[in-house]
Each structure stands twice: as C-alpha cells, then as structure tokens.
C-alpha cells in the first residue's frame, strides 16, 4: 500500500462546495473553521477560470511538523499527518509554514480545546481510541478505521476530488486523462513546474486542444 493522498482534478471541479459541507457534516466542524475549502483563480475571466479544492495535503515532508515547537505532529504509516491537540499550544507556527493554509485557529471552544490548531485529518481521527467520543470531539470521525475514505472526496459532485491510496487515486486519474485525450497535463501548476516555453509542454498542450475529428451528423 502507498501513502494516502488527495487529488483535485481542475478539469472537473465546479466549486460547488460539496466537499466543504460534507466535511462540516461528517465532523460537525464549527462555524469559522475551514478544514477544506474551494479556491477559484481568475474568477470570472473567460477561458482562465479554474477551481480547486484544498485542504491539508498530508505532505510527506510536512513543514508544519518541522516547525512545531511542541512536536505535536505525527505521521501515520499510511502517510496521514495528524496532531495531538493536548500537546498543541496553538502558537500558529504551522500556520506560517503551511503553503496551503490548512491549519485553522478557531475562535473558541473548538473540538473541546480552546485555541488549539485544527485541520483536515483525512478522516482518520486522532490520538484517541478509534471511534470514541473523545476522538470525535477533538478530531472528528474516523472513517479510515471504518474502512471508508474521506467524505469530501466520496461525496464530490463531479468526482473531481479523489482520495485514498495514491496508487488507486492515480489509476483512476490516469484512466480519466487518457479518455479525455491528454487533458489534465494542463493541471494547475503544470507550466510552473515544467516551463511554459518548453517544447514538451507545448506539444502536450497542442495535443490536448487538438480538435476532435469531425463526426458525421445525422442530417447528411
């Protein structure tokens, strides 16, 4: 088994916020805490608008973990980054470090502990007995322990947001990308990662936008 990962397919994400409320529903996440949210870039710009659902990415080399002064973070064998709220002091260093804005600092009383950091758990609960009230109150539901995947992905309206074992997720995504003729290489950040002007990127982009061969209509 590989690591647990989220993947958001920007060709599919329509900013319906189903993932956001699925998370709220499953974990009774209080007002003001956004464990998951959808961001839209170039909002309203014809041809350039893209939406993307973002939460904790459960980094393999997690900056939050690296900077935490109380070392409250741990990573599970499945690659899920979790933390112990009893140890967290709510300082916000992880908030500085996280490139995705995942750590949340609720106004009050959240998950039984004032001021402690809260974030996406990949529906894996936390360091309390699995399925216990204590786990639910501090961290939310533990779906992984029930053999289920994060509800945000399971309920995604267009199946844009995928979650699970990275091997399974990439298999689903690959099948999809092949079917749509190579799109997906235009994923957010592709040109940043591989260079706008590179021959490779241009070829891929051209392949992706090439017209579909004309189909014969019934009117002829």
């Amino acid at each position: 088994m590989a690591r647990m990962k989220f993947l958001c397919d920007t060709e599919r994400c329509i900013e319906c916020n189903g993932c956001v409320t699925a998370c709220k529903n499953e974990h009774e996440v209080p007002w003001g805490v956004q464990r998951r949210r959808v961001v839209t870039i170039n909002d309203g710009v014809v041809g350039q608008e893209k939406s993307l659902s973002v939460a904790c990415m459960h980094c393999s080399d997690a900056p939050c973990m690296a900077v935490c002064p109380t070392d409250c973070f741990y990573r599970t064998e499945e690659g899920v980054v979790l933390h112990d709220k009893d140890v967290c002091i709510g300082c916000g260093y992880c908030f500085y470090a996280c490139p995705f804005g995942a750590p949340q600092f609720p106004q009050s009383g959240t998950f039984g502990l004032r001021g402690k950091m809260d974030k996406c758990t990949f529906c894996a609960g936390g360091p309390e007995e699995d399925g216990s009230e204590a786990e639910f109150e501090k961290y939310g539901k533990n779906r992984l322990a029930e053999g289920k995947l994060p509800l945000c992905a399971e309920m995604c309206s267009t199946k844009a947001l995928l979650a699970g074992d990275a091997v399974e997720v990439s298999n689903i995504f690959r099948e999809r990308v092949i079917r749509r003729g190579g799109k997906g290489v235009e994923a957010i950040g592709w040109s940043t990662a591989y260079g706008k002007g590179s021959a490779d990127a241009d070829t891929r982009a051209a392949a992706a936008t090439a017209p579909v061969p004309e189909k014969t209509g019934g009117a002829q």
Partner: peptide, 27 residues
C-alpha cells in the same frame, strides 16, 4: 484546560500514541 507537556525531546513526537486504523473495533 488540557494538561501541558512538561518534558519534551526536540524533534520527537510528544503526543499520545495512536492506534492504526485497522486496529479498531471494525477490523
């Protein structure tokens, strides 16, 4: 208010241990 950790080793997880997901009542 929760109890605070008094003794800490830098760079090492200081929280409570957790069980693996397949170790719960379901599996």
């Amino acid at each position: 208010e929760s109890p605070q950790v008094l003794d800490k080793k830098a760079g090492e997880y200081q929280g409570k241990v957790d069980t693996r997901p397949w170790e719960g009542p379901a599996y």
